[in-house]
Design a protein around this nucleic acid. Structure first.
Lengths: 340, 340
DNA sequence: CTGAAAGCGCTTACAG
DNA sequence: CTGAAAGCGCTTACAG
């Protein structure tokens, strides 16, 4: 492989001149620039990334820490990952994907060896043990997922409080007064998925304010359990006219549950879910839903991280950026059916 | 960050001795080794990856090229990716995930800049334009997906010919003589997904040999089109007693299609799919299926790549490793119903 | 506007 | 068994 020395020799200039001609970091005569560019072309020169990293202390690589938890809907993760890799590339960065079981030691290993310029952490838990390492690391980081203590770090997440309120308000406005909220399993919460309770509590509070009866239940995240549980909940709350789903598996299972009971949405029951647009397409789910905005969260995390990496002053104060929930109306909500 | 120089100073030895003590590449007195290890611990020393890469020409990173094609079932990709990243880590490698639209230039960019020691290409097409670059690259590569011309490169794929035969044989043995095969859309084939026709042709040939009538159809890969098409096929072939699905969306749509027709598998119709075990779990699909073995393919590709990277002689001849299809019996096949 | 030189942090022949 | 030195391929002050 050609080196900058080869380029310099072919162009008949010094190595420093060749380097400056390529970086544009000092003025170069048109003539010399031309010769250098010719040499680069004829030699097919590309800078050696390791050498450049050593000289500049910049790798142009972002470390992406993905956690794959049991009982989590893994395909959803792909949207976050693509949001990150694609936007990173647009900003001139490549992505090192870290899927180690032990995120703490992966983070330490990559940080200490200076393999990346910054980190993005996915699936951040309420009390995430990776945050201590990240705060002490030499490289900046962005989180996707709001932890209990976000101090000192940039955080991006869906506004689950607003999401819970929005779900209730939307059906309340249509005239619903009796709703069921199906959350993810309780152990997701115990593991640190505080967004589950953020949404549920906000929904409860808003329901109380509006005089709406809200039945909140944690439910399994896999078939066939979730299907059975949905049927049980519909039996248990016969007066409920609306179903709020903060549980992807429940959304996927609902069509067949409704069909087998001879019900349809929104004629018999209104439904609002919370999942990604992509998830809706994959499963062809017909429900109005709050988009979880996975790719957008990934993109924002990258933007912020890159500007922090490239900013000279490191006194930029950290932000917590909660995306305002947006409803994708797929026509599964309506006024409640008139009882007879 | 501490350097090897710091370690040497604290341990009271030369930098080369410190380096050798850590690599174990020459014999070191127990006493010196002890002092060096102490120094490493007290300083929290980790080698700088860029410097090491520059000195050794080894990055300990694998480049993973993933293509996300329209009309492809994206979540399936995640299994391949995890198979690769996890096995790579076990072998001491990290993974650079490349999702560039233009795989050709991504491959060239990463190869020329010496950012990785080898490549794994996912979703390889019949006539994949990345292969030319890969063959000319300084780093070795493994393919997941069999191209038309695999010469000179290690290839890993499911044996789709055997899969087609196996599907037909399994139902033939049970007594079925009239089958429908649902393939992915024809444009998947046109785009280079030759596995579609490899499976279909093998199934056709085997059916002919066994005196089985086989109706082969390309079908859409998204809802609601695929559901309608399945219904149409069942109408068009009322005497068919078995359904072979080489189309993930068809498998996902089938439960509701059967239910709405009052049919059930295997009582009324036998079903064999071809998708990953993980896919079956996610959608809780009840069908017997040939596992697409995504993670196993990823793992094998890594094993081979690593041994090629680390082998001194580069005269190792390339292999084409086709995984023998394995049927996961979920009870959706039986003897055909007796007509009356 | 350009060049000679130092330095980034490692590894590894070469000498002893 | 250990050390001094060269070299990997860049970038960037320092000098002119």
């Amino acid at each position: 492989m050609a080196t900058i020395g080869d380029v310099a020799r072919v162009a008949g200039v010094s190595r420093s001149t060749a380097s400056y001609a390529l970086s544009g970091k000092r003025s170069i005569s048109a003539e010399v620039r031309e010769k250098v560019e010719q040499a680069v072309l004829s030699l097919g020169y590309t800078p050696n990334a390791g050498a450049r990293a050593l000289a500049t202390s910049q790798t142009k690589v972002i470390g992406l820490l993905a956690r794959f938890l049991e009982d989590e809907f893994a395909p959803a993760m792909l949207q976050y990952i693509l949001g990150v890799t694609n936007r990173a590339r647009e900003r001139g960065y490549d992505t090192l994907l870290l899927t180690d079981e032990d995120g703490v030691s992966a983070l330490r290993r990559i940080s200490d060896s200076r393999m990346v310029d910054g980190f993005i952490l996915l699936n951040v838990a309420e009390n995430d043990d990776r945050l201590g390492i990240l705060r002490a690391a030499a490289q900046p980081g962005s989180l996707v997922g709001l932890p209990g203590d976000p101090s000192g770090i940039d955080v991006f997440d869906l506004d689950f409080v607003a999401a819970g309120r929005l779900m209730v308000e939307t059906l309340h406005e249509l005239g619903h007064r009796n709703l069921i909220l199906v959350s993810q399993p309780e152990h997701v919460l115990e593991r640190g998925g505080a967004y589950v309770s953020r949404l549920a509590n906000a929904a409860q509070d808003r329901a109380r304010e509006l005089g709406v009866e809200l039945h909140h239940h944690f439910a399994p995240s896999s078939q066939p359990q979730i299907g059975l549980e949905l049927a049980r909940l519909l039996d248990a709350h016969p007066n409920a006219t609306g179903l709020l789903l903060n549980n992807e598996a429940a959304a996927a299972a609902l069509p067949s549950v409704l069909r087998s009971r001879g019900l349809s949405a929104p004629a018999d029951i209104s439904v609002i879910g919370r999942y990604s647009d992509d998830f809706a397409r994959t499963f062809s789910l017909p429900y109005t839903a709050i988009d979880s905005a996975a790719d957008e969260l990934g993109r924002r995390a990258v933007e912020r991280l890159v500007s922090r990496i490239e900013s000279t002053s490191d006194a930029v104060s950290p932000i917590v950026d909660l995306i305002t929930p947006r409803i994708d109306d797929r026509g599964s909500t309506a006024v409640p059916p008139t009882r007879h």
